[in-house]
């Protein structure tokens, strides 16, 4: 008798629950925010600067929060430093083939670039006269920081999906599309956060906001394509999504988090500022639900003996 249980169904769930969902969301958003700050600093104009400053703040806050969440999620939090220093030898701990190892270093590097961007933003606004901040605001340093920040931001937004794929868990390891899906989602949630932040701070930046909305449309369209590719690439394993999580992925993520805001942003001048804010809120909720659905749908699959528990 040959059963047809996919090989990934025999692994155990690693208990990646709400804290990891939160980290994936915040990390992606922070990564996307630094990408946007870097883009505007490198290719934008002086009028975009208030939003560059806001994006730098979001990126730095996200980096700090991410580090805290990841540490708290460890079952031995006081040993968080074992990720970067070998406790037996004192030598650096790095495995280029382990996404979690690379991710820890990536978050560290991201934090440095986010800090440089934030210090530069502070000096830009004349809120500090500290020498280091003024050095960070120097055009050459800021440009180098923006290039590095863009790379680090793109990495942080996408590596979490690759981390899940480099496992033996159902759904996660059955597709290679999670990294790129999380990347697009990270950028779109960052755009949404900046749109809401700009509105909350009362920033009057029609040209910058119009660019953000245009860029968001492209990002959301790419996210929709990546989401479809992800589900199709699962093949027979997609049956593990025939449940509430699958419904959430279709209705909550694709419907509410991508297609609805895409429709609302299609003609921003017609829909007005309030509708745009609503669209941004939908993108944020959709981005969170995407991580929740992907992580928790796999977490609930477990084979006990010959019984598949779902």
């Amino acid at each position: 008798m040959q059963t047809s249980v996919p090989d990934t169904f025999f692994s155990s769930p690693p208990h990646f629950r709400w804290l990891i969902v939160l980290y994936f969301f915040i990390g992606g958003l922070a990564g996307g925010a630094l990408v946007l700050a870097s883009l505007m600093r490198l290719f934008g104009r002086a009028e975009d600067r208030p939003l560059v400053h806001l994006a730098s703040e979001v990126a730095l806050a996200g980096a700090v929060l991410s580090a805290i969440i990841l540490t708290v999620d460890l079952t031995r939090p006081l040993r968080f430093w074992h990720m970067v220093i070998q406790n037996h030898t004192g030598l650096p701990m790095f495995k280029w083939w382990s996404p979690m190892s690379v991710g820890v270093w990536g978050l560290l590097v991201f934090g440095v670039f986010a800090l440089v961007a934030w210090l530069g933003a502070l000096a830009d606004q004349g809120r500090t006269r500290w020498g280091v901040a003024r050095a960070a605001a120097n055009p050459a340093v800021a440009a180098i920081g923006a290039v590095g920040g863009m790379a680090a931001g793109l990495f942080l937004a996408g590596y979490t999906g690759v981390l899940l794929a480099v496992s033996n868990r159902p759904i996660w390891a059955d597709s290679s599309w999670l990294g790129v899906l999380f990347l697009f989602s990270g950028v779109s949630t960052a755009i949404a956060a900046l749109l809401l932040g700009a509105r909350w701070r009362g920033l009057e930046l029609p040209s910058t906001i119009a660019w953000l909305v245009r860029f968001d449309r492209i990002t959301l369209a790419l996210e929709a394509i990546a989401l479809v590719c992800f589900v199709v690439s699962l093949g027979a394993v997609a049956r593990a999504l025939v449940n509430g999580w699958g419904a959430l992925l279709v209705l909550g993520v694709l419907g509410m988090g991508v297609l609805l805001p895409l429709g609302m942003e299609w003609r921003p001048r017609i829909h007005g500022a309030q509708r745009m804010a609503l669209a941004a809120a939908c993108v944020l909720v959709g981005g969170f639900l995407l991580r929740a659905a992907v992580l928790l749908s796999s977490e609930q699959v477990r084979v006990l003996g010959t019984h598949v528990i779902r």
Partner: peptide, 8 residues
């Protein structure tokens, strides 16, 4: 340190 990457 209980990161649980090995479990998955």
């Amino acid at each position: 340190n209980g990161c649980r990457d090995c479990i998955s």
